[in-house]
C-alpha cells in the first residue's frame, strides 16, 4: 500500500466515496428523468393534439361531436360517423370477446389438465402477438369473402322477419363493413381479456374453492358463487382493458370497415372508425382545416381511451390492493 498518496485532506476512501456519491447522484438523476419522461409523453400527447385540433374545435365547437357531415370540399367536418363506427365495432367485439375470454380463462385455470395449461395460454397469447396489419390482410382477402359467401346471406335469411334483430342484421352482404370489423376486433382483444381474467382467477385462494367443493358444489357453482364474486373488479378491469384496445385498433379495421362516411343501422353496411379515418385520410389531407379536423378526431379517440384505460387500471389496482390484504 506504499504507492497510495496519503495526503491528510483526501485519503483514498474519501475520494472513492465522493466518486460513489457523484455516481449515485448521476444515476438517480438519469433514472428519475426517464421516469418523468413517461409523464411528459402523456402530457405532450394531450397538448400537441389540443394545439393541432384547435382550429377545428374553434370553428365547429361542440357541434363537432354531433355533426355527421364530413366534406373536404366545403370544409365541413363532424365526428359523429367516426365515433359511431368506433363505438359500434367495439361493442360487437366486446359482446363476442367477453364470454369467449371468460370461457378460455375458465378452461385454463379450472378444467384443463396441468400439462395443457401452458401450451394453451401461450397459443392464445400468440393471437395478441400477430400484428394488426396481418389481421387486416387476412380479413380483407380471406375472412370478408367467407362472410359474404356463407355467413351474411344465411344471417339475412334467418333474421329477415325478426322485428328488432332484422333491422340490425341488414345491409349489402359484401363482407366489408361494420359487422366484419367488429368480429375481427373480437378475435384481436380475446387474448388481452383472457390474460387478465386468467391472472385474476389464479389469485383466488384454493381454500375457498375447496371448501365449496367439499359442500358438494359443482364446478360451475364454484365459478359463479366463489370465483366471480372474488374477482369481479379484476374481471371488469380486464374487460375495460380489452375495450380500450378495441377502440383504438387501427390497421385491421381500416382494411375491412369500408371507409364510408354514412351512418346506417344495418350492421352489414360499410362505415368508419376514428382510427381508420385517420389512417386513410391523414397523409392525403390538404388544407389546414382538414388536417385540424382529423387531429380533433384523434383527440376524441385519445380522450375516450384515456378514460376507459384509466378506469381499467383503477379497477385492477383495487384488485391487487385487495390481494395484498
Amino acid at each position: 500500500m506504499s504507492d497510495i498518496p496519503a495526503e491528510a485532506g483526501s485519503p483514498l476512501h474519501v475520494v472513492r466515496r465522493r466518486a460513489g456519491a457523484l455516481g449515485d447522484r448521476l444515476f438517480h438523476g438519469i433514472t428519475g428523468l426517464s421516469a418523468i419522461l413517461v409523464l411528459a409523453v402523456i402530457i405532450g400527447i394531450a397538448i400537441s393534439l389540443l394545439i393541432g385540433a384547435w382550429p377545428a374545435l374553434m370553428k365547429f365547437g361542440l357541434g363537432f361531436l354531433t355533426s355527421d357531415s364530413w366534406n373536404p370540399v366545403t370544409n365541413d367536418y363532424g365526428a359523429l360517423v367516426a365515433i359511431y363506427g368506433t363505438l359500434v365495432t367495439s361493442l360487437i367485439a366486446m359482446l363476442i370477446a367477453v364470454p369467449v375470454s371468460f370461457g378460455i380463462a375458465l378452461f385454463v385455470t379450472e378444467l384443463s389438465p396441468r400439462w395443457l395449461r401452458r401450451p394453451i395460454s401461450t397459443a392464445i397469447e400468440l393471437l395478441a402477438a400477430i400484428p394488426s396489419i396481418i389481421y387486416g390482410m387476412w380479413g380483407l382477402f380471406v375472412f370478408a369473402p367467407f362472410m359474404s359467401n356463407y355467413v351474411q346471406p344465411w344471417l339475412l335469411d334467418t333474421f329477415e322477419h325478426v322485428p328488432l334483430l332484422g333491422s340490425l342484421i341488414a345491409g349489402p352482404p359484401i363482407g366489408i363493413g361494420v359487422f366484419t370489423a367488429g368480429l375481427i376486433l373480437a378475435i384481436m382483444v380475446i387474448p388481452f381479456i383472457t390474460a387478465v381474467m386468467r391472472d385474476t382467477f389464479e389469485v383466488v385462494p384454493g381454500v375457498l374453492k375447496e371448501s365449496s367443493y367439499a359442500l358438494g358444489a359443482t364446478t360451475w357453482e364454484v365459478v359463479r358463487s366463489v370465483i366471480l364474486p372474488y374477482t369481479k373488479t379484476g374481471v371488469v378491469g380486464g374487460i375495460m382493458l380489452g375495450l380500450g384496445r378495441a377502440l383504438g385498433e387501427t390497421m385491421a379495421v381500416t382494411f375491412v370497415i369500408g371507409n364510408s362516411h354514412n351512418i346506417n343501422l344495418g350492421l352489414f353496411y360499410p362505415g368508419n372508425s376514428i382510427a381508420a379515418t385517420l389512417a386513410n385520410e391523414f397523409t392525403e389531407a390538404d388544407g389546414q382545416m382538414y388536417t385540424s379536423a382529423l387531429i380533433a378526431l384523434g383527440l376524441v379517440l385519445f380522450v375516450i381511451t384515456l378514460i376507459v384505460l384509466s378506469l381499467a387500471r383503477l379497477l385492477l389496482m383495487r384488485l391487487s390492493a385487495q390481494e395484498g390484504k
Binding site: 413517461v38 409523453v41 402523456i42 405532450g44 400527447i45 400537441s48 393534439l49 393541432g52 382493458l241 380500450g244 384496445r245 377502440l247 383504438g248 385498433e249 387501427t250 382510427a275 385517420l278 389512417a279 391523414f282 387531429i295 384523434g298 379517440l301 385519445f302 381511451t305 384515456l306 384505460l309 384509466s310 381499467a312 387500471r313
Partner: peptide
Amino acid sequence: NDVLLSAPSIILGLF
C-alpha cells in the same frame, strides 16, 4: 405508463 402501454398506437404516430 400502464395507460401509455395500451394507448392507441395511431395516436402515438399523430403525436
